[in-house]
Design a binder for these strands. Structure first.
Length: 427
RNA sequence: GUGGAUGUAGCUCAGUCGGUUAGAGCACCAGGUUGUGGCCCUGGGGGUCGGGGGUUCGAGUCCCCUCAUUCACCCCA
């Protein structure tokens, strides 16, 4: 029986989705799926293998790598299961992938190891435009090479995905935050510079001064103080300098745009040397489309050997938003098989024959009148196949194009009909 | 965690100075003759006006609280 819409009850429910989450319906859900495939195919072209890890990990996996990272300190979805295990919904991909690299002994696989992932991430933040408590992230990690070519390859894969999706001229903003040899010196110089200015800088920056001095650089309030601040480039050790310059020139040699941003630092503790971001004007001033960097100490901090790594993450919702109508869901031609009264079962069977031959089609499931079916077809497709009556008895069905109103009788023999509807691509 | 704005039908929104039974467009369902859609016409279903409390003879309208959404911070994808 069809639902009696005349007696439909009003919508009254408190069962709403949790704050900061979203229900994705078509066509948004279709765009997301198309992007997922595009990302998958591109990562494969670059020689990366897909990896799936749990969406929750022992909390220690994230805590070990994010001592002063907001994402793991203040924004965790953490729970204790009935066995008393402390678990956390993953706020980001890299730590979990690194854990999997260690646990599965991938340091014994041919290096470097190239992995990519796609899936939900969870952060308990205050929701805002393009900032959700659950968002979908695509990312890749490359373990086992500290060569600049590894950084460049990661940047090129990430920009390839967004460029293929239709983002015009993505510009990589890049910086190096140095290594354990040169960064402490720079950090000290930065603190020394800002200390006398303590009363002039904003509250957040006063906190940063002691907690995370590098973050002073990307403050949006205290621009004047920043201009005179020491530049980390002056403090790079020789190895870091050469590494950075080689990364930049390798990317440039491929024709991708890349610019140094001396104020770029990133929010995860585990980064070393290269950090990069790609923003987008349509997303507003302060919303990164994606970002990444090098993390040479991460694997070791997760009880693995000393293996360097570099990776990135792209926020799918943000990318789709930036792309807008340039990235739409694509759909193959579809057919609505409408049945003359008394022929619903014949139509139903024909539809299944067609689907087995790769034809996308709808069929009425409400036992509606032919008129109602064609009205319905008009909203779902522009092509109708009418099943029944005299033609059916003659081995034919009517193929009707709704946009022009033209219609013709064609064979209903499944192989012939499917070929007619799904013409093989001409070579 | 901080600050601002906004909540009326599935969607987009009207709703005057506080005053009768809360409206429109779109969408949805049905009919406009038995095998043909869109356009048009007619009819229909759908609202505790986000929730709770208060002021008042009377609250969608005024006040307080709360929840949600949204924007800007913080931070990040």
């Amino acid at each position: 029986m069809s639902p009696n819409l005349k007696e439909r009850t009003p919508l009254r429910t408190d069962l709403k989705r949790p704050r900061g989450t979203q229900d994705l319906l078509a066509p948004e859900s279709l765009r997301l799926e198309r992007l997922r495939r595009l990302a998958f195919d591109t990562a494969r072209e670059y020689g990366f293998d897909p990896i799936e890890t749990p969406i929750f990990e022992q909390s220690a996996v994230f805590l070990k790598v994010g001592e002063s990272t907001d994402v793991v300190q203040h924004e965790r979805y953490t729970f204790t299961d009935v066995g008393g295990v402390d678990l956390t919904l993953r706020p980001e991909g890299t730590a979990a992938i690194a854990r999997a690299y260690v646990e599965n002994g991938l340091f014994n696989a041919p290096q470097p190891v190239r992995l990519f992932y796609w899936g939900p991430m969870f952060r308990r933040e205050r929701p805002q435009a393009l900032r959700y408590r659950q968002h979908t992230q695509f990312g890749a990690e490359l373990f086992g090479s500290e060569e600049p070519s590894a950084d460049a390859e990661i940047m090129l894969l990430s920009t390839a995905v967004v460029a293929k999706a239709g983002l015009v001229d993505p510009v990589i903003r890049v910086n190096s935050i140095g290594c354990s040899l040169c960064r402490p010196t720079y950090r000290a110089a930065l603190v020394e510079y800002y200390q006398p200015l303590r009363d002039e800088i904003c509250e957040d920056c006063q906190r940063r001064l002691t907690q995370n001095p590098l973050r002073l650089l990307d403050c949006k309030v205290d621009q004047p103080a920043r201009e005179q601040a020491p530049d980390i480039a002056q403090y790079w050790c020789d190895d870091c300098r050469q590494h950075f310059e080689t990364v930049v020139s390798m990317v440039q040699s491929t024709g991708r745009a890349i610019d140094r941003d001396p104020y770029l630092v990133r929010g995860f503790d585990y980064y070393t040397r290269t950090v990069f971001e790609v923003g987008h004007p349509e997303l507003g001033t302060n919303v990164a489309l994606f970002g990444g960097g090098r993390y040479d100490g991460l694997v070791a901090s997760l009880d693995g050997p000393s293996v360097p790594g570099v990776g990135f993450g792209i926020g799918s919702e943000r990318l789709l938003s930036a792309l807008g109508e340039r990235f739409m869901a694509v759909s193959s031609p579809s057919y609505y098989v409408a049945a003359v009264p008394g022929h619903h079962q014949a139509a139903f069977a024909l539809v299944e024959e067609l689907r087995r031959r790769g034809v996308t089609c709808y069929v009425d499931l409400l036992s509606r009148s032919l008129k109602a079916q064609i009205r319905d077809a008009n909203r779902r497709s522009d092509r109708v196949i009418i099943v029944g009556g005299r033609e059916w008895d003659q081995g034919l069905v009517t193929l009707k194009y709704l946009n022009t109103g033209e219609q013709e009788a064609v064979s209903r023999e499944p192989d012939q009909l499917a070929r007619r509807l799904n013409p093989a691509p001409t070579a």
